[in-house]
Computed example of a mutant assay.
Amino acid sequence: MLNKRRNLVLAAGTLALAAALPAFAQEPFPSRPIRVVVPYAAGGTTDQLARAIQKPMSDFLGQPIIIDNKPGAGGTIGTDIVAKATPDGYTIVFGNSGPNAIVGLMRKTPYDMLKDLRPISTVAICPMILTVPADSPAKTLKEFVQLAKQKSGEWNFGSVGNGSLSHLTGEYLNTLLGTKLVHVPYAGGAPMMTAFAGGQLQMAFVTGLDGAAMVGSGKVRYLAVGTPERTPVVPGLPAMGEEVPGFNTVAWFGILAPAGIPDVVANKLHAAVVHALAQPDIKKMFTERNVDPRPSTPKQLEDMIKGEMNQWGQVIKKQNITAG
């Protein structure tokens, strides 16, 4: 009788423990909608790319993908939401260089860029493109470099925000050329490109998504792609490395999840990204906007983040850059 009673107690305890386990340990993933936090306002490059893969990811996973824009503080507000979310795969972030590799080098963030988020996959790689107004006296990259040196301290460059990749790329150019081009931050890509049309900027480094409309209207011109060598992603343009040896800057965009997410869930999300980027219409949309649709392994994305932290950490220190 005593043994029977003990067995009943043990069985009851086992049932109670099972009931207390997180839902993701009991049910197949996914069994409900997935929230993708975009840490920027709607309409920008990050938001456009996230929405582009929203439907094919949803089709693959069999559940709705809900885009949730949470802008602010250089992308760190939305990123922190995900860093502190339950690690079950139902809240993930569409990240990029800024909040995941750069901002934490300039000021304290409420999350650790390497420890609190688990890389899932890159989605896209975008070369940064040197862009000038249509009436700029710089008609070639060589002329631009010569004029930038002559106009040091006079010419300005725009960015999508203080501490952003477009900001650091401009300061990177200052570092390599020994110039003092003046930084002018804007609250996103749209107002920055509008500043071009108003004649307020002499240059900026942009992604193909931010620059497409203005280039198509003839109000600005692309001069060079920010890579050591020419790239088919932006055909016909010289590489910055041809006139500025060592210059190399690209923007990445990808999916990250809270640290602690189960491997089976991470693998399912990774497979969904790979599926989405394999769709012909997605490839076409990305290519037309000078974006390389490129999935990666989690380790490749992690290594990219670490490499950026090293590269941009040196620029931040040399130029004494802080993020607001």
Rank of each mutant, 00 (worst) to 15 (best):
P235N: 03
W252F: 15
P33K: 07
P33E: 06
T46P: 11
I53K: 04
A73Y: 08
A25K: 14
I67D: 09
V315L: 01
D263M: 09
A18Q: 08
I81A: 14
L130M: 00
M128P: 04
A224T: 04
A18C: 13
P119H: 09
V215Q: 13
P228V: 13
G226A: 11
K84Y: 07
M214L: 15
Q314S: 15
A73N: 14
K108D: 14
L301S: 08
S136N: 10
D59S: 07
I81Q: 12
H270C: 07
L114G: 07
P245L: 00
G44V: 02
A138R: 01
Q48M: 13
V291F: 04
L17Q: 06
F94Y: 12
V233E: 04
F29M: 07
V291Q: 08
A16S: 13
K268L: 06
L141I: 09
L277G: 07
T109M: 07
F205I: 08
E143I: 11
V274D: 04
I102V: 10
P238W: 12
A41C: 06
P280R: 12
T322K: 14
K268P: 05
P185D: 09
P33D: 09
I125T: 11
K115A: 14
G189I: 01
T207L: 02
N162V: 15
A52W: 09
L256R: 12
A148T: 05
I65A: 05
